[in-house]
Simulated scan of single mutants.
Amino acid sequence: MTIRVMLVDDQELLRTGFRMVLQSQGDIEIAAEAGDGARALEVLRSTQVDVILMDVRMPRLDGVQATRQICLDEAGVPRPDAPRVLILTTFDLDEYAFAALKAGASGFLLKDVPPTELVAAIRSVHGGEAVVAPTTTRRMIDRFAEVLPTPSRTPGSTVLGPLTEREREVFLLVAQGLSNGEIAARLTLSEATVKTHVGRILAKLGLRDRVQAVVLAYENGLLRAGSAD
């Protein structure tokens, strides 16, 4: 299956570099390009795209706002058929990248990402995975904890209501950055069983991936910035 990619960045030279790398891959096609978020939204109305490489700091409409409009509906609910968005950042602790994760992005990449990692990230995201390890996301949340709203719910009171007791256990371990293998060892389960639990958790809570699970946990007071593994 060919992965249709859109490049969104106001630096034409950077888009050219990414295009050269990606066009050499047999399973990746550059479907579209845009120089800012507003133009990206216009192009998406008539162009089918699977994965978007999205810069954050752009004129007219920045990458965070564009990502929110692409990934979430007016009620803030993830759009199941939306393209996956990978945020491009200059620094690995960019507050704009963090905001984009909250807006529905599936992860972030540094602009100087090695070509092999860029290609692997696109394939992973297209396959439904998040390219940012949950532990890395936690570091970002720790860094920008002051921008998070004060939790309006008693931890675990309603946000995890749809989950079974076992699913709640798995959710909290996912939010702490544990892999499926680590969760399996912690709970004495098989990795296949953990994978099934994670899939059900994401579906029940309306989350697109593990990154969004980490953000949800912090925003609702289920974990605190700086909490231990």
Rank of each mutant, 00 (worst) to 15 (best):
T196H: 15
A203L: 14
H197W: 04
D209R: 09
R208L: 12
L223K: 01
T196S: 14
R210Q: 14
R224W: 02
A217E: 01
T196L: 13
R208P: 12
V214N: 13
A203H: 15
I183Q: 00
G199I: 09
L222Y: 02
A217N: 03
S190A: 10
G206T: 10
L216I: 01
A203G: 10
A184M: 07
G199T: 12
L207R: 04
R200W: 08
T193H: 09
L207F: 07
D229P: 03
V194C: 07
R208D: 10
S227E: 09
A184D: 08
K195W: 11
A225C: 03
R210T: 14
N220Y: 00
D229L: 08
L189P: 00
T193L: 09
L222T: 00
N220F: 00
G226C: 02
L202R: 15
I201P: 01
R186N: 08
L207T: 04
I183T: 03
G199S: 14
T188G: 04
L223Q: 02
A184I: 03
A228S: 07
L205F: 05
R200L: 11
G199C: 12
A213G: 10
A217M: 05
G206I: 10
K195L: 12
G221F: 02
T196F: 10
A225I: 01
V211L: 08
V194H: 05
L205K: 04
H197E: 13
Q212T: 05
R200F: 07
I183G: 01
T196A: 13
L187H: 00
L202Y: 13
V194W: 03
T188H: 09
L223V: 06
K195E: 14
D229S: 06
T193Q: 10
H197V: 05
G206M: 12
L222R: 01
A228V: 06
S227G: 07
L187Q: 00
V198N: 08
G221I: 03
R210F: 05
S227L: 02
V211Q: 11
E191C: 10
Y218C: 01
K204Q: 15
R208C: 08
L207N: 02
A192N: 14
R186I: 01
A185S: 11
G221P: 06
L202H: 15
A203Y: 12
H197N: 13
R208F: 11
T193V: 14
A213D: 04
S190K: 10
A213Q: 07
K204W: 09
A185R: 14
I201T: 03
V194E: 06
D229E: 07
T196E: 13
A228L: 09
T196I: 10
Q212G: 10
K204P: 11
V194K: 05
G206K: 09
L222E: 01
